[in-house]
Design a protein around this nucleic acid. Structure first.
Lengths: 244, 244
DNA sequence: GTAATAGTGTCTATGAGACAATATCCG
DNA sequence: CGGATATTGTCTCATAGACACTATTAC
């Protein structure tokens, strides 16, 4: 590191949160409508500056979530997603933003807080297609978050986090289909999930009644990292010899 | 974000680098012996504070590498590894460190620079086993970097980056064995690598002469992301139903 | 020839994916 | 019963891993 008598330049440190949830079996991301410049009127990820020099980064993230969207999800597990610190990404000066990713089952409708003109869940496909005006480099951050979620679904038991405390295998399948954006075969999915030890465990004799035969209910199992992993069907383009 | 008239607290932003290389078919990491407090005499990752408010993060990383180890590897590809920002990790105050990972074939012996009592390649197994006194939370950062490298070897063509411009399949195998820390079957490895399209391509009719039959030489292919991936042999413990 | 390493062939077990068949609910 | 969904069975193909075997060099 560097000499003690030299003082490093001040950099503004911010946190940004990509909060993903499932609503009507579609992937949604929480966005805040900015009430102030810059980017007034555009949609942005919840987040903001560190409040004091000793504030923990994840503590700041939780605080912003409460302030901007009145979501008091203290138990929400935040995972480091990346750092976005290109000079010039924020017109106010040098801002380095630490992005976190969180995933949760049906969170409540958010309530806009200070500085926020609105707080809403937006369909991820709409956000990524470019319909919405996003502030800063937040579209890129959302892209990275979604891609991370897709990968995590393969190797971790994350999918159960999108469900309630108990769920059927078909529910779980719909999570995979929504996040991956592709249909899956229910029968193969059924056995695949069962073969992955510790992924899900039966939740008593209860059944969930739907249109047809009632389905067994399950709970998230003890395993956090899946073996064997759930593999995403291969994009046929990848099987060919293509560049990059 | 927050109101314009409020000024966020100053936080010291640092970069730290995990530079991995292979020396005598063993994984090594670059460490600097600290010449000043805190942690004087301990070994640390190369890195340091941002020099001015507009400095790009990767530019700062390259600068520190040059200053502390006289390694002028401008082309070295740096990948974001993580953020280490727990309050109290640095006795001088709140320091948030952005860690980068780089991987390269036989880099030159480093030369200690300012503030550094020494600069050396250390065997990763020795560093992780706890023989060495490491500064700050740098042992943890090295662990994360090594684990990232192991995973990247599975899904990307990173292994070729450890080799020179041309290499034999046996060379490539030694890279995998060194980073993963396990032996592999040369015959299965041979075909596995060949079946992964675009991973390696023949480099003319040249041969490498060793003790036995000369081996064909290859070059890194166009593919950066491997399909099918090279899979690490499964730790038998993972195949069982164990907790977490 | 032997030693040593490179490269090929082949067998087996396992898993993914396609899809037929059966089970269990509602009405 | 028929419609709908859940669950099981079975078949086929691809691949990982074990390992016998052949090839090509140096000595």
């Amino acid at each position: 590191m560097t000499e003690d008598h030299w003082t490093p330049p001040a950099v503004m440190l911010a946190v940004d949160l990509v909060i993903l949830t499932l609503r009507e079996w579609r992937l949604h991301v929480l966005l805040i409508e900015r009430g102030i410049e810059p980017y007034q009127g555009a949609w942005a990820l919840p987040g903001g500056f560190l409040q004091h020099a000793e504030e923990d980064l994840t503590a700041a993230a939780h605080r912003e979530l409460a302030e901007e969207a009145s979501l008091h999800a203290e138990t929400l597990h935040l995972e480091h997603l990346g750092v976005y610190g290109a000079p010039g990404r924020d017109p106010r000066g040098r801002v380095v933003s630490i992005a976190y990713l969180a995933i949760a089952p049906g969170l409540p409708e958010p309530i806009a807080g200070t500085d926020a003109a609105g707080a809403r869940w937006h369909r991820v496909d709409r956000v990524l297609s470019g319909d919405l005006r996003l502030a800063f480099d937040h579209r890129r951050i959302v892209e990275d978050g979604v891609e991370r979620a897709r990968t995590k679904l393969e190797h971790s038991a994350l999918a159960t986090a999108f469900c309630g405390p108990t769920f059927t295998i078909a529910d779980l399948q719909r999570v995979y289909e929504a996040v991956w954006g592709i249909p899956l075969d229910p029968r193969n999915f059924y056995r695949k999930v069962q073969k992955t030890k510790g992924f899900i465990v039966p939740a008593g004799p209860e059944r969930k009644v739907t249109a047809g035969r009632p389905a067994r209910l399950f709970r998230a199992g003890p395993r956090k990292v899946l073996y064997p992993p759930m593999v995403r069907p291969v994009d046929p383009a990848d099987a060919k010899e293509s560049e990059e």
